[in-house]
Structures are given as structure tokens and as C-alpha cells.
Design a binder for these strands. Sequence first.
DNA 1: ATGGAACCATAAATTTTCCTTATTATCTTT
DNA 2: AAAGATAATAAGGAAAATTTATGGTTCCAT
Lengths: 292, 292
Amino acid sequence: MHSFKQLQCFVAIVEEGGFTPAAQKLYMTQPAISWQIKTLEGELGLKLIERSERRLVLTEAGQLFYESAQTILNQYEKMDSEMEQFKNMEKGSLRIGASTIPGEYLLAADLARFTKTFPQVELQMRIGDSRSIVKLLLQENISVGVVGLKPQEEQIQVKPFLTDEIVCIAPPDHPLCRKEQVFLEDVLQERILMREFGSGTRNQLQEEIKKQKNTSCKVLMELGSTRAIISAVEAGLGLSWVSKTAVRDEAVKILDIEDFSIKRDLYVIWLKNRTLSPLGQTFVQMLEEAYD
Amino acid sequence: MHSFKQLQCFVAIVEEGGFTPAAQKLYMTQPAISWQIKTLEGELGLKLIERSERRLVLTEAGQLFYESAQTILNQYEKMDSEMEQFKNMEKGSLRIGASTIPGEYLLAADLARFTKTFPQVELQMRIGDSRSIVKLLLQENISVGVVGLKPQEEQIQVKPFLTDEIVCIAPPDHPLCRKEQVFLEDVLQERILMREFGSGTRNQLQEEIKKQKNTSCKVLMELGSTRAIISAVEAGLGLSWVSKTAVRDEAVKILDIEDFSIKRDLYVIWLKNRTLSPLGQTFVQMLEEAYD
DNA sequence: ATGGAACCATAAATTTTCCTTATTATCTTT
DNA sequence: AAAGATAATAAGGAAAATTTATGGTTCCAT
């Protein structure tokens, strides 16, 4: 088994045109170079360099070897710089933004994985409604966002990555929970709780109701977070719609409404004109892999 | 600078699924593997293998490294097998040069044998007069030459390998063919055909005539190839001298001249300061064996 | 649970590899 | 022929890699 050093010495000799200059290039002494070549030739059982005359000349074997040695060293350097780049990612920081649903529920696992891979990276996540996340992105306060509302801005690169389902929730002891079939009309009779204006969930919900039933719903209470809504529903203050993932382990009942359902696409967004940092790229890639 | 061994160990671990099996595969002890990985990770500044849990798991960095390491090792093996092939003469090319007689007549069988033994080798033979072959050798356009004129150059290694006889030929119906004893004077009366200037045959012939008889001969026609001379002699245009091997199956008569005969040594030549490639060595060796 | 088996990490000692300095040999140049 | 440049060689020593021996986990089966 030969070593990188041998290849390196050999290539240096060829390129610098002699043992002594090669030694200088590699910060070694000339006998060390001689030794490397000697062992290399010994291992190969072939003479690589003809060194009788003033100028060094490669033997046929030497020429053949030179081709491959070069390729290998190039490949080696490529690898090294790749690893270097990767290592640099460990030192950086990544600021992402997410709207409530992805931020508070969905992304938790991904963030954990990310910080495990890059423990040194300072990771910041800002949570807000979709509109504010887009704003943060445009101001470059964050470099990646995950939102539930497709931004229309020209400068924003949008990539859908997951479809979330928005479900209607009720306290477990609510009359509708016992009903065989529940329709949208039944629900709209009830007190409805909602997130604040600007929420992607609320926005989409109202549009869907209007589109599918051509009515609107009375919003009897506005709350600032999904968690607050769940608590309120649980306490019997009314019904509401939230992301299915948000209620996985909660003490509220999901109402299966026969004639109404909402799917909600989630999008990863970043600025078109900024090339995403290696860390950002890796983060996006991790999301893609996770929700493929 | 990492080593091939490190890559090798790492790849072996990934492929064998553990340190211990990797050690067995590489005929090393397990601590040696541990050490290699440790230093590799240290040099990179990155952890490659997660070994806390029951199963070994590659980190993200490890996966990245694995890709490149594999490529490099593959390339390395390719190089190694190429060199091995070269050493075994299954690969490579051999360019030889020969002057007319050896090239067109004598060497045919040897070349055939050579290509049969080494079918993968690209074999080139250039034919010219002795002087031009020497020139090609000095310019390193060929690595071995076979000539009929001993080159005087200091840098050329010369090895005689065969003595060819140069005989006088005449058309079968020529008067001299019926004569009991033929002497040189008889022949010199006739029309003499010869090869162009620079030919070893011609050179030697004229020198021998001058030496042995202290006369010179009138050259009445110069022809560019031995075959052309034979045809011309056959057609009755005159007499000439050619290598005995060239007329083996030809329709011309050999004149046995009582007081004149020429032996001609053929030489294998190569450059002193270049080590002959394995192929070249073998070729020379084959010639020696064939004409021992 | 508990003893054993499999597996990796660590330590110390040893071997091997590799590099350096010093010197010699060879070839080129003047 | 002498000087200069360049590679080979020798000897000593530093550094790297490997081995044996051992310790600590985890996993499995009794």
C-alpha cells in the first residue's frame, strides 16, 4: 500500500522538474523525497523516473502512474475542501422563522436533529404568523422560513414540503361529539374561537367556508396562540379549527365534519437573490428528507 | 494529510459494520482501527461515526466522507491494477524500428510471436534504413531498434544478435549461373543494381569490395527497396546483392562467388541511459532466444 | 437481575516508518 | 580540471502505527 505522500512527492517532482525543488515545495529535505520515490518504485516494482541525465525524464511506467496519481490527488483535495466546508457549517449560525403550526409543533423534531448534527451552530427560530415571517425574511432577519401561506412576493423562492390537515376540535363532552354525522352547519351554530387576524390558519379557514358554503362564520373570540385556543376549547368556551398535529396529545375531540375539510400546504421559503448558506441548504435538505 | 490506511479503515468499518470485523478484513487488530479512526476524526475535526448506541451510525459528516473516500479508494485500486498490468506487460505499447532486411523479412515471425504472447500491447514498427532508425532511437520515437549497421554513438547500447549473409543474385537464365566457378571479377563486369545511399547493405557491400579487391563497382541503378531489387534482377536488369533470407522463396538464383563473401551482423540497439521498459526487455529477450 | 459475550476505548510498550543531518557520488558546466 | 548542482546513501533519531493487555458498555440468555 503506497501513501498519499508518495504520490504527492512524485507529482511534485514531475511538476517542479526535480527532487530538490519538489522538496522545497513540500517543505521536506531532498533525501526525504529520494526516499519516498525509492520506496514507491520498490513497492511498484517499476522505475518511474529516469534520472541519469541533467533533466529528469519519466519512464513509460512513470507517465502511466502520473495520470492516475494526479487524479487521485485532485479527488483528495476535493474531499478535503468538502469536509472543510462542512466543518465551517458547524461554527455558523442559522436563523429561521416559522409560523405557529410548523414552528410550535411540526419542526420540533427537525430542529432537534439539526442541532445534534451541528451542535456548535447557534440556531434561532422566530415564531409568528405567516405574514410576519415573510416580513422577517424580506428584511433578512431570517434566512429560511416555514409558512402555511404561499407568499406572492417575486423575490421569494417557495418550495412546498408538507400538507397539513386542519381539523375542527371540540371539548370531549360536547353534544356534537355524540352525533352520528356532523355537518358544517351544525358547527357554525356554535361559538367559534379563532386566532388573530393575519394567521394563515384563520385566513384559509374563512376563505374555505366562504367558498364551500358561501357563508361566513361569526368569530366570537380571538386568541393569540394555538395552545391558547386548545385550552379554551377544552374549557368549553367554544369550537375551533387547528392543525391536526397540534392536537395529537391533547384532551380535545376532533370532529369529523362530513361536508367540510381543509388541507393546508406548508412551504419552505427563502430569498431568491440570496444564495442560501450551506447551513440553510442543509436545513432545507433535512426537511425534504424528513417529509419526503 | 490523511493516509490511505485511514480511508481504508473507515470504509471497511462502514462496509463490514463494525470495528472488529473491519480489523479482521484488513488483518489488523481492533485497537489499530480505533486509533486510525481517532486520528482521522482528529485531523478532520469532525466526528464521522456515532458509536454510543448498539449499532454504529454514520454522522452526516461521515456520510459525506464515505462518498469521497470510496471514490478515492476505487481510483487507487484502478491505478494499482493498471500498474500491475503494465508490469505484467498486459498493457502498454512498444515502438520498435528496424532497417529493411530485419524489418521486412527477419522480424516478421518474432513480431507475430510477440503479439500472440501480449495481445493487449500496441505494437508499432517503423522501417527505414539503418541511419534513420538510429535517429528515431535518439529522438526516443522508438525504444528498440534492429539495424544492420553498428551505430557509433556513445549513448547507444548495441547488442549483436544475428549474422545474416549477403548473397549475390542473378536471374536464373543468366550465363553466370551456368559457370562452374564464379569470381568477383566476373560479377563486377555485369550491370549492378543497388539500394539507395544510406542502406546498410549497400554501405557494407561497397566497403567489402574495396577492401577485398581494392576496386569499386559501377552502380547502374538505385532502387528503393529490396523487393524492387529482386524484381529487377528477376527481370534481367542486372545483378545485385541482398540478404539471403530475402530470397528464400524468390525466383532468382544465388551466385556462389568463390573469392568473395559478406557476412552482415545485425544488432539490437537501445538507449543506454533509458531503462528498457518491461516490454522492450522482453522483446530483446525473445530475439536472443530465437536466434541463439 | 446476573454472568457472559461482543464490542469499542484506552494504556503502555514496541516496531516500523519516515525524516534529518552529513556525506558521497555523479554529471554538467565553465 | 575544478566548481557547482543534483541525487543517492548512511546513520541517528523522532514520529507514527501497531500490538498486547485491559477496562468499560451494552446486549443477551440463562
